[in-house]
Simulated scan of single mutants.
Amino acid sequence: MALRLVLPILLSVFLLTPSAYAFQGYVQHVGEGGAIAWGSGELSVVQSVEKKDDEVTPYTPLAIRKAVSKARRLLLDMVLSTRINAKRTVSSALANDRLLASQVRGLVHNSLFRGPSHLDTEGSVQVSERFRGKLAELIFPTTIQFQSGIPPKLSTYMEQSETELEAVGSAITGYSGLVIDARGMRLTPALAPNVYGQDGLGVYGAFLVSRANAVNKGVVAYANTSDLTVLRERVGNNPLRVKAVSAYGSWRTDVVIESSMASLVRAVLKAGNIVENCAVVILVDDSVPSEIIETEIQ
């Protein structure tokens, strides 16, 4: 195998080990060989390397390059198809910005890959990226008003007095995170969803989180288990647990909780470091809807 292929493969063995991102959260399978880990934000695609029976070596450099190219095309489709929030996908957010679109393509084109070793009888390659860091910086629209402090309002919102909104008080401490159980709601994971109270007023979302924390940690994480030993890395040892009452929006990306619990959550978020740590997990079903956008960004 050519040296230019061997070195990246050896490096990727260390960079893409399963323990690299401990909290994977809910893993959504997309297309043929694609997966999104909604805890770590890792996207990965595994593709088989084609080989001929009469070949002396199990797989040639050309076959590996073809498999990597195919995997990266699916990886790009996965990135574009992901919903940022209830209003847009990554694809729609990049539609009118050719420079950003080109940068996203370039990032995916140069994504890390792990190739088959001489001991690998299956002959597969894996490419990966993350909805963190550089990729997140590129795809989060500048129109999102991170940390504005102004909660979004649903059409059902009814004006309430400050006394009603602060009825629980603001001195609640001791909670290390927030777990919202939205199982059974057929929720669609998104990069920057909103949590609303039944009163129609936003409780948690990008309006509370800094852009830097959203980029580096993710606004929320998704999981399909309530086991604290799994969730602890994200929400700590003593998270507040809240049951969702419905999902909102045509894509069911946003979560609605009871008004009384919404008041409690607002008070808890003000009292601790939950917002700064983005220590929020939304529980989803084992299988959620997925869609791949096949239109290439220009």
Rank of each mutant, 00 (worst) to 15 (best):
A37W: 07
S124Y: 07
Y175E: 12
C278V: 03
T188W: 02
G123H: 11
V288L: 08
D199F: 01
P151C: 06
N85V: 05
Y196N: 01
L154M: 10
G236N: 05
M261W: 06
A212N: 04
V219Y: 02
N96A: 12
P239M: 08
E50R: 14
Y248Q: 10
R130H: 11
V220R: 10
L135E: 06
N216I: 03
L240M: 12
S161K: 06
F14N: 12
R266F: 03
L11Y: 03
I274C: 13
Q47R: 15
G39M: 04
A167S: 09
Y222K: 05
E32D: 15
A20H: 10
R232A: 11
W251C: 08
D199K: 04
G123L: 11
L107F: 07
G31Y: 10
L5G: 04
S92W: 02
L43I: 13
V245Q: 06
S19G: 05
D54P: 02
V90G: 08
E258A: 15
R252E: 04
H29S: 13
Y204M: 06
I139L: 00
A212D: 13
T295C: 04
G218W: 02
T60K: 06
G34T: 12
I64N: 08
C278S: 11
A221L: 03
V256I: 15
L62T: 15
T142F: 00
F207M: 07
T163R: 15
K87A: 14
Y26I: 09
L112V: 14
K51C: 05
V108R: 01
T173H: 08
E258Q: 15
R98I: 13
E32C: 08
V268C: 07
S259V: 06
G106M: 03
G200V: 05
V281A: 00
D254K: 01
T225M: 02
E137N: 00
F146I: 10
T188S: 06
T156M: 02
T225E: 05
D285S: 02
V127R: 06
Y59I: 04
G34A: 07
A247M: 03
G197P: 08
L135H: 05
V6W: 10
L187R: 00
G174V: 08
A190V: 00
L154I: 02
A167T: 04
V219C: 06
V27H: 08
T229M: 10
T60M: 02
R73T: 13
L11V: 07
F14W: 13
E294K: 15
L201N: 14
V168Y: 12
L76I: 00
A20C: 01
V256F: 00
Y175D: 09
V245D: 06
L100D: 02
V68C: 00
A182Q: 01
V288Q: 08
R183C: 03
A223R: 04
E233P: 06
I257M: 11
A22G: 09
L16R: 12
T295I: 14
M261A: 12
R72G: 03
L112F: 12
E296V: 08
N110S: 15
Y21C: 02
M185P: 00
